[in-house]
Design a protein around this nucleic acid. Structure first.
Length: 630
DNA sequence: GTAGGGTTAG
């Protein structure tokens, strides 16, 4: 009230009489201004500023800037700055830095940089604030350049500067720069500072150097929620889901503090493991602890439920969200897409109106159409993407179109599409066409595509297997032998296949031809039992799936040792009669295991949910939700 | 006055 009364007196006065009278009293001429700011009345404070003219001093400006920062009010901040210039007030380094910070926080890096460049003297705070501005806007190289420039002036970085600069160490030269900053931090004795240390370990984890990240984490003299979350999410982001979960369990038992970021990172690891039971427990814990359901956490829950096979529950969470980001929509679309629910994907995509789709959205929609068999809808959406130009399609989007055309049997069209693309085709794109050639028995184009793949990645076993399948289906056994010979020459290596099943609270993992599992004999006997049963129903092992140069009997044995079959058998032994058996495979499922699962589902009347590297296969009554195209 | 961890896709 006092402030308002004073202001109105100022505003109604035509002279500086009142101002000077106040000046002779207890208050500085601009103290009312600070009061107005304290009361959150920025527009009144700005009026007072205009009225006071050159009478505004340090505290008045400082209060105004604080208020502008709090409200993110750029235009108002600019007015304050303009007033300083107009009234020929000489701000000190502190006030200039505050203006710089105001520009950074209000999102105008250009103004902030002009401020910094115009400063006759710069403090470590001004440098750090500017570097932080760049790093938070993702302008990492600008941030690092400025950091270097700062070092050249002889200015010594403090713990704030190190923590900030390290976040800019990402991308191609991230590790190189990060290591140099690390050695500087060591020299300055900042490497075990909790903020610098978390930033350091995060930098190493994001560069794939998880052991170095862990070493730094273990060296920290104290731990807090951020450093613990950084190391857990480091493991999760590299796909080291077991390690992420193990470390979380350990730290949690030691009493670590958790917040919504910790749980979001943990859920990423659980999504990777498809550990539905554990995921449910975490969800329950989050509810019991009343952790606020920020969008990020809900997005993680959507993802976890869908990747654990329960896409309907994902939708429940999605529907309950008071606010959604593009990532929420993307997570939901990806969920439907991986389950082959093409119609749901298109329906949901068309209902997106508040938030804008991005590249990931289109990837999810196009793969959803492809997996769901909605070829024409997918092609239309790609066309609309080209027309609207709001999102520029990249090579992965073109890859989806190749997949769509290939699935529909339009092999030649897909081939020409690849040749006309504005990108150099990758092995993934040729690989997609090769699969289509196998499905539609197009040996001619298949052979050509295989040659391309041989040039690009001769060591990839997948292409040899598909070509071998293609020849086998065409009855060209001599060519099958040739492919096998070629493979021997090229010394093919591949990521070992493994499958796992989450029962109760344990994840049981199986490797191909597993000889170490404690229950291996019982499991093998179960596989054999299933094999005999389904053979009677017409199952024929697809020997072209075996890469080794051995006799047919041996091939059959190898096929029966595939990790998917071991996991299926184990699941049959340990789940109730009616329940769905949920298996996860780290690679794409092989044709023979897919067929095996279909026969098992029919003969044993069990529902199987198989998650492979790309999608879910819901196998019921002898057929699969993928329509045999994957 | 300046600082560290997070969700979808690949």
């Amino acid at each position: 009230m006092l402030a308002r009364r004073c202001l109105s007196r100022h505003l109604h006065s035509s002279s500086n009489h009142i101002v000077s009278r106040q000046n002779n009293g207890h208050f500085a001429p601009d103290s009312n201004l600070s009061l107005l700011c304290l009361n959150g009345r920025l527009s009144d404070a700005l009026l007072a500023m205009a009225f006071l003219g050159p009478e505004v001093c340090f505290h008045g400006y400082d209060s105004l800037i604080t208020q502008c920062i709090g409200l993110g009010a750029l235009r108002e901040g600019q007015r304050v700055h303009a007033h300083i210039i107009k009234t020929l007030y000489h701000p000190n380094v502190y006030l200039e830095t505050r203006l710089l910070i105001m520009y950074v926080k209000c999102g105008s890096l250009r103004d902030a940089r002009m401020m910094l460049d115009g400063m006759p003297q710069r403090s470590i705070v001004s440098w750090t604030a500017m570097i932080s501005g760049y790093s938070q806007s993702g302008l990492h190289s600008e941030g690092l350049d400025l950091f270097l420039q700062m070092l050249k002036t002889g200015m010594k970085p403090n713990e704030y500067t190190f923590a900030t600069a390290l976040t800019s160490c990402t991308g191609p030269f991230g590790l190189e720069n990060g290591i140099q900053i690390h050695s500087l931090a060591l020299k300055s004795n900042f490497d075990t500072h909790i903020f610098v240390g978390s930033s350091l370990l995060d930098m190493y984890a994001k560069s794939g150097k998880i052991h170095e990240a862990r070493r730094i984490f273990d060296m920290l003299p104290e731990r807090d929620v951020v450093s613990c979350t950084a190391i857990i999410s480091g493991y999760a982001q590299l796909g080291l889901d077991d390690e992420a979960l193990d470390l979380f369990r350990k730290l949690f038992n030691d009493g670590m503090e958790c917040n919504y970021v910790t749980f979001a990172s943990l859920l990423t690891a659980l999504s990777g493991l498809a550990a539905l039971n554990y995921g449910r427990q975490v969800h329950g814990l989050v509810v019991r602890r009343e952790v606020p359901f920020y969008v990020v956490l809900q997005n993680s829950l959507i993802d976890m439920y869908s990747k654990c096979g329960n896409v309907a529950y994902s939708r429940r969470i999605f529907d309950s969200m008071p606010e959604r980001t593009t990532i929420s929509w993307n997570a939901m679309l990806v969920g439907y897409s991986k389950h082959g629910l093409g119609h749901e994907v298109v329906k949901l995509f068309k209902s997106m109106n508040v938030v804008k789709p991005d590249g990931v959205t289109y990837m999810a929609v196009l793969t959803g159409c492809s997996h769901g068999g909605l070829v024409d809808e997918g092609l239309d959406i790609f066309e609309s993407m080209l027309d609207e130009k709001s999102v520029k399609p990249d090579i992965e989007h073109y890859g989806c179109v190749v997949d769509l055309l290939g699935r529909a049997g339009r092999i030649e069209k897909a081939f020409n599409f690849i040749l006309d693309m504005p990108f150099e085709p990758t092995s993934a794109i040729w690989g997609s066409l090769l699969s289509a050639c196998r499905l539609h028995a197009n040996v001619h184009i298949g052979e050509f595509v295989f040659q391309k793949l041989l040039d690009l990645e001769p060591e990839n076993a997948g292409s040899y297997v598909i070509l071998s399948n293609l020849y086998a289906n065409a009855g060209r056994w001599e060519d099958v032998l040739k492919v096998r010979q070629l493979m021997k020459e090229k010394t093919v290596t591949k990521e070992p296949g493994r499958s796992w099943i989450d029962l109760e609270k344990t994840v049981h993992t199986f490797h191909s031809g597993d000889r170490t599992h404690p229950q291996k004999e019982v499991i093998n006997a179960k596989v054999m039992e299933l094999f005999v049963k389904i053979k009677e129903a017409g199952y024929v092992p697809d020997l072209s799936c075996v890469l080794h140069d051995v006799d047919d009997e041996q091939k059959e044995r190898i096929l029966l040792g595939h990790s998917e079959k071991l996991a299926i058998a184990f699941g049959m032994m340990h789940t109730s009669y009616n329940g769905t058996i949920r298996i996860v495979k780290n690679l794409r499922i092989c044709v023979d295991c897919h067929n095996f699962a279909k026969f098992v589902s029919k003969v044993c009347e069990r529902e199987l949910s198989l998650r492979d590297k790309n999608r879910f296969h819901l196998v019921v009554g002898g057929s699969c939700s993928c329509g045999d195209y994957w």
